[in-house]
Design a protein around this nucleic acid. Sequence first.
DNA 1: CGCATTTGACCCGCGC
DNA 2: GCGCGGGTCAAATGCG
Length: 531
Amino acid sequence: MEDHNNISKSNGDEENGSIKHQKLESAKGEMGEVIEENKRLKLLLARLANDYQSLQTNFTDILIQQEESTKATCKTSIIHEESEFITLSLGMSCTDQPSKDEKRNRNRTEKRKLDDEDLHKGLALGLDIKFDPSTNEAEVTNNSSQQRSFENEEGKGEESSEIWSHSKVMNTMKAEDKSETYQHSQLKKTRVSIRARCETQTMNDGCQWRKYGQKMAKGNPFPRGYYRCTVSPSCPVRKQVQRCAEDMSILITTYEGNHNHPLPISATAMASTTSAAASVLQSPSLTSPNSDIASTIINSSATNYNPNALNFSTHQISRPYPFYFPNSSISTINSHPTITLDITAPPPTSSGFSYIPKYSSSITGLNFSSGFSPLQSSNIPQQWSSYSGNGNYFNNGTLTQNRNQGGYVTNTGKQPFHQGHLHQPIYMSNHIISQQQSVPDSIVAATKEITTNQKFQSALTTALTTYVGNGTRAKENDVAESADMNLKLSGGDVSFTSSQNGIGFASSRYLNMPSSLNKVQQGNSVNFHHH
DNA sequence: CGCATTTGACCCGCGC
DNA sequence: GCGCGGGTCAAATGCG
Ligand SMILES: [Zn+2]
């Protein structure tokens, strides 16, 4: 592109022709190179996909071995049996295992409305359907069975559910959570948390969120916000947003769950990223070691995105290979398996965190000037240059319409951003830090293997980079930006604190096509993991 | 008026 | 059993 401009702008009049010619030639050459590289990349992609599959298989094997060896009788098998049982029973009747689920439901929902109810009719689900707690027991049973199956798929079948009122959905989700919690004894939903520099209150990830709570988290002077996705009323996805205690320019966004609806293009990047990341924590194995899903993710990460992703890839080619994922870690936080992707620049303070990798690499990774120098002249908003020294910023352009280049977009709003409060070095926010729970080494190793896998990394790279372009939202310059952000991910520096066996749940990954994915998922029997 | 946000109350699991 | 911390609810409030 730029070449063309240059060509048309060339100065010398007489030599214009030859110069033109030269440039044309070089341009052609470059194009040829690009095309070549494109081919190579495609090949590489294919190869990587294969590698990834084999890796998945290995991972699966390891998991299976581990399961067999350690908890031969305990958890997993129980989980399997129960889930199958549940799944089956759901279709028929829900009366067989009211136990804790229902108790809980009752506690939460009905307790507020009525007091005593029989366990069976006590199903909050049925009651909520009716909106009248005290009547229609028979119907309740029916409805609840339906709803149970609906739960099973964790929103999969929720197209129809959009009719339902919010409270219904909530209850459904609650039930889901509860049962899952109980059956997995400890494991909760997988979470993906992303540390990014962001001046605004929340990252603009393309999704619509409604805030439903805010709390002061322990060990962090900044409040934590709780958001839920409002794109679809039934969408189970939540996110928590909290500013980093040590560096208030870092915003930690933690995603949980998978969207059960088509996403706006601008949101697919983040959704895919979190899905891909979450998939690392989830055992693809257990029942069927289907690596297709993994590759599906990868593929969608690589191609299914918005056009930006594609364009980005062409840019990507021209730049040096190494991607950096400065800090990423897998940990267990409050019994939530959590993968943390750190796309900030140099870690501000490493107060005792051994897992934070060396600054040097991060710093170099930070410097995107190398990546986008050719483009900078043409379409780069100036803000970027001002940020470039500090790292990747994810400001919410929608709030601040920062087209006019000015420096910072301090839209911090109501958040207590007084510098005075900051310096207290309160770490121990519930981060990666530590929560050693004995984890089979094999799992850790396997997980590490996958996480460090370049394939995975590149998937994330693509996703994140695309996301960056969207997040910054400078009108049609998205393409350039996504390339320019030059997010770098590296296979190194992945540290592990602890993780439980990835028998997580939440494997449903809806990117754009819930319905088609349903099949995949069912084929994968992922459902079982949920219950 | 229909939303989204705010915010105190509430629930729940966990550790003591 | 109690207190704590994380998470959610929902009435009140704010906003376009
Ligand atoms: Zn959603």
